[in-house]
Design a protein around this nucleic acid. Sequence first.
DNA 1: AAATCGGGGAG
DNA 2: CTCCCAGATTT
Length: 344
Amino acid sequence: MSFDKELINWYLDNKRDLPWRRTKDPYQIWLSEIILQQTRVEQGKPYYFKFLKAYPNVLALANASEEEVLKLWQGLGYYSRARNLHFTAKYIAFDLGGSFPASYKELVKLKGVGDYTAAAIASICYEEPQAAVDGNVYRVLARIFGIDTPTNSSQGIKEFRQLAQKVINKDEPANFNQALIEFGSEQCKPRRPLCGSCPFVTTCVAFNQDRIGELPVKLKKQKIKKRHFNYLVYISEEGKTIMNQRRGKGIWEGLYEFPLVETASEAQLENLVADVPAEYSVINKEPVLYNDLPVVHKLSHQHIYTKFWIVKCDELPKEALSLAEVNKLPVPVLIENFIDTFDF
DNA sequence: AAATCGGGGAG
DNA sequence: CTCCCAGATTT
């Protein structure tokens, strides 16, 4: 039997009952695909339910505020996804009259929708034969067809997409694409794949050449940078504090945090006070270090060593917020964890 | 072409 | 600890 039909048969016998597999509504498929970018299914599920409940359709999402969307996205990471999701919802609702783009060519123009996501939506919702190549697909194709081009190189991206496009089943691209992804996730797993029950074991190049552990090939990852964050947690007598929104490029764009003083190395009280910006001159008492050991917040490309400094003061500017107001703001997990453990 | 952007689970 | 997850965008 041909590769595509064998794969689809495997899928029909083994596919999981996932919530977004019960619909072909482009809004719901789009939402699920954005949430699942670089995100495990089990991590994304609760967010999919939350978003669908809060925003049942694209107009509801379009009518929300960006801050509200970011708050719902809090904890999922890669927050540009949430901002692009909201931007695109407004574009579809208000500029396209609420009707979703219905082809790969149009879908890929949407902000936050790249090659993979456009192909996924086009195939699942409209049965357009466009290969959706994600991390799972790279792994399956690299092993079965014995391809050692690095999957994250320009060559590899082009080569794997061409191969996927060549072997796709054009009669049922929705099933084929999801089958390839599901197969990579559940059968041809990164470590210890289930070769003993694999329908392609006789033809799989990697298995027959004993190269399962070598494929797929990925280029080395970048070095992790260390950063030192000092958060000034102001507390007024009426229990209010100061929060700022992160602007510009960089991590956590659009999220809120306490006034931040970043230092080149771990700060001590003496060199910290000298670095406190003038706009926080309301300080009338010295910062008191809350955590003796810096909290290490580990991201995929940087480690953030964090010290929280408590600054008790008589009064704060009008923009100071109560704890109830703080809890409505979207914040990074690092800040959320602090707020949860600190007794205001 | 390479860097950047989160957080968490698995081994 | 390392790897990687239903990738996209910017530099």
